[in-house]
Simulated assay, not measured.
Amino acid sequence: MDSINGLDILIVDDDPDDCLLLQEALQENMVVNQVLIKHDGEELLDYLQHCYRLPGLILLDLNMPRKDGREALTDIKNNPNLRSIPVVILTTSDASEDVQQSYESGANAFITKPASYSGLVTLAHNVRSFWLETAVLPTEYDIR
């Protein structure tokens, strides 16, 4: 089975358990796109600057060590070579200031992480349905 849209999904979260559970929830929803994992904003930006093919979707946590998701989002959206990558904030926060700041910084969506695995499976279904099947995403990036 080919990946949907041929795009890679990049999960950026410092919690390895959250990454694994989200990856499993995506697989349970038949998302066969390559899923890459980075654990902080520094790793994310280093990857984006040196990768051969940019991801089609970034699921970004806010609270991480070294460079947090807020800083990474700002860096991505201020870079003309990266700004068209859709970035979905996926975090435990539901603070109105985090929501507001994320959208002001260019986030394409803000989602509070569900508390249960079944909620995560539903979230993965919604990610597949909207971001991979409904939305038209850029397929080619001029990164150099």
Results as ranks from 00 to 15, higher is better:
Thr134Gln: 15
Ile111Asn: 05
Asp18Phe: 01
Glu42Cys: 09
Gln34Val: 05
Asn79Tyr: 01
Ser93Glu: 10
Leu20Lys: 13
Leu123Lys: 06
Ile9Phe: 03
Ile4Asp: 00
Val121Asn: 07
His125Gln: 14
Asp142His: 15
Val121Tyr: 07
Gly106Ser: 09
Val99Met: 06
Lys77Asn: 10
Met30Pro: 00
Arg66Val: 11
Lys67Tyr: 00
Arg70Met: 15
Ser96Asp: 12
Ser118Tyr: 02
Gln100Asn: 04
Asp46His: 11
Asn5Lys: 13
Cys51Ala: 14
Ile143Leu: 12
Val31Gly: 07
Leu132His: 02
Ser3Lys: 13
Leu21Trp: 03
Ile4Val: 08
Asn63Val: 02
Ala25Asn: 02
Thr91Tyr: 06
Ala25Ile: 00
Pro114Glu: 06
Ile76Leu: 09
Ile76Arg: 03
Asp15Cys: 11
Asp17Phe: 03
Ala72Cys: 08
Glu71Tyr: 04
Pro86Val: 07
Val121Pro: 06
Cys51His: 09
Gly56Ile: 05
Tyr103Ala: 10
Gly6Tyr: 00
Glu28Trp: 08
Gln49Leu: 11
Arg128Asn: 14
Ile58Pro: 04
His39Gly: 05
Leu137Gly: 10
Asn29Gln: 15
Ser93Pro: 14
Ala135Met: 13
Arg66Met: 06
Leu90Gln: 00
His50Lys: 13
Asn78Tyr: 12
Gly41Thr: 08
Asp15Met: 12
Arg70His: 15
Val32Pro: 01
Lys67Glu: 09
Ala124Val: 06
Val121Leu: 11
Pro16Asp: 11
Gly56Trp: 00
Leu21Glu: 04
Val121Lys: 12
Asn5Ile: 01
Asn108Ser: 15
Phe130Val: 14
Thr92Pro: 04
Leu44Trp: 02
Leu54Ser: 03
Asp18Cys: 03
Asp68Ala: 10
Val31Lys: 09
Asn33Glu: 06
Leu60His: 04
Val32Ala: 10
Ala95Lys: 00
Val136Pro: 00
Asp61Glu: 04
Ile111Ser: 04
Tyr103Thr: 09
Leu57Tyr: 05
Leu22Arg: 02
Asp40Glu: 14
Glu133Thr: 06
Leu57Thr: 05
Ile143Asn: 11
Leu20Trp: 02
Gly106Glu: 07
Glu140Ile: 13
Ser102Trp: 12
Thr134Asp: 08
Ala72Thr: 05
Gly106Leu: 08
Pro114Asp: 06
Leu62Arg: 13
Leu44Phe: 07
Asn79Gly: 00
Tyr47Trp: 05
Lys77Ser: 11
Asn126Glu: 12
Cys19Gly: 09
Asp46Trp: 02
Glu104Gln: 15
